[in-house]
């Protein structure tokens, strides 16, 4: 997925002289073509995220559109004040391409996991927050970002993720994509949880339960109309995120349901990471299983909510 995103940045830069690439200390050979062909617009600045964000802000103030790429947790936690002040307060068109969001770096432990990145980016005024579900969607997203106003956060997953997005659905920041029409229950996913939601929906279909899937690739601004339209008539909504339950997709969806539907809202179950630093290693899949985010577990959560009395889900 990162390669799809960086290839798209290269393509954009070939035709748009405003585009610059800024990395920290990425893997050897990353973006070599960009570096060789457009050296004056390629920057690899070392392990110095605070300075990198400031520098990107200065470039943007003078007319450039910087795409900044490093590991998600370092691009959010380490330089949060620079992101808030230099990018968001000035409302500058800097694009943060955050590699390894969620629990991708499971074997490397909690210092390398980005489990609250979406929440803390979402809390910043002017910031747009996205997480594409697969490589083709990452490409569609990046290709649509050149003239997007203000700063943008893009959470990139591991790579090699199942491709579930479809060309014919197109892509627009802030517009959710209904991948499967719901009947009884609606799954709302973001990033790679969308493919888990689809697999869970397949399992439920075999049991005669009609589960829909909404790809909420943009967390902010949240597509409230798309959510409410997809949720019409369902008994329950299950949000699924590879992210803390504090301030991410579940919180955002819950907020909309409460504000817009009040007591008439469908039951809501939020699946995600509880308020802990993950203690286990293994793999992304293993950690997602640990936190109940794999297809069978998602399907089981749906069954639980559908078999409980109305209003008893939470």
């Amino acid at each position: 997925m990162r390669k799809a995103a960086t290839d798209a940045i290269y393509e954009l830069a070939k035709t748009d002289p405003r585009i610059v690439f800024v990395g920290s200390d990425l893997g050897a050979g990353t973006m070599d073509k960009f570096r060789k062909e457009m050296p004056e617009r390629f920057f690899m600045e070392g392990v110095s995220e605070q300075n990198i964000i400031g520098m990107a802000a200065g470039l943007a103030m003078d007319g450039f559109i910087p795409y900044v790429n490093t590991i998600a947790t370092f691009l959010t936690r380490r330089c949060y004040e620079q992101v808030a002040v230099d990018l968001c307060l000035h409302n500058l068109p800097v694009r943060l391409i955050a590699t390894g969001g969620g629990v991708v770096y499971a074997p490397l432990g909690p210092t390398h996991l980005a489990i609250e990145d979406l929440a803390i980016m979402r809390a910043l005024p002017n910031m747009t927050v996205t997480a594409p579900t697969d490589a083709p969607e990452a490409r569609r997203l990046v290709m649509s970002t050149v003239d997007l106003p203000g700063p943008l956060y893009v959470r990139i997953a591991k790579g090699g993720d199942p491709v579930v997005s479809r060309d014919e659905d197109g892509f627009q920041v802030g517009k959710a994509i209904l991948l499967r029409q719901p009947k009884d229950v609606l799954f709302v996913g973001i990033g790679v949880t969308v493919n888990r939601c689809l697999a869970a929906a397949d399992q439920l279909a075999a049991q005669g339960i009609g589960a829909g899937v909404l790809n909420m690739h943009t967390l902010k601004p949240l597509d409230e109309a798309g959510l409410l339209s997809a949720a019409k008539g369902v008994r329950a909504i299950v949000t699924v995120e590879e992210h803390t339950l504090m301030g991410g997709l579940g919180s955002a969806v819950g907020d909309v349901l409460l504000r817009r539907l009040g007591r008439t809202a469908p039951d809501l179950i939020t699946l995600g990471i509880p308020d802990v630093f993950p203690e286990k290693y293994g793999s992304q899949d293993a950690l997602m299983k640990h936190f109940g985010l794999q297809p069978t577990q998602i399907a089981e959560a749906a069954v639980r909510v559908l078999s409980a009395p109305v209003g008893a889900a939470a």
Partner: peptide
């Protein structure tokens, strides 16, 4: 501690432009 990074970006922008 924010001004220098921003200034570097502006100085690089001047060089490119």
């Amino acid at each position: 501690g924010h001004g220098l990074g921003i200034g570097i970006g502006m100085a690089l922008a001047a060089r490119i432009q």
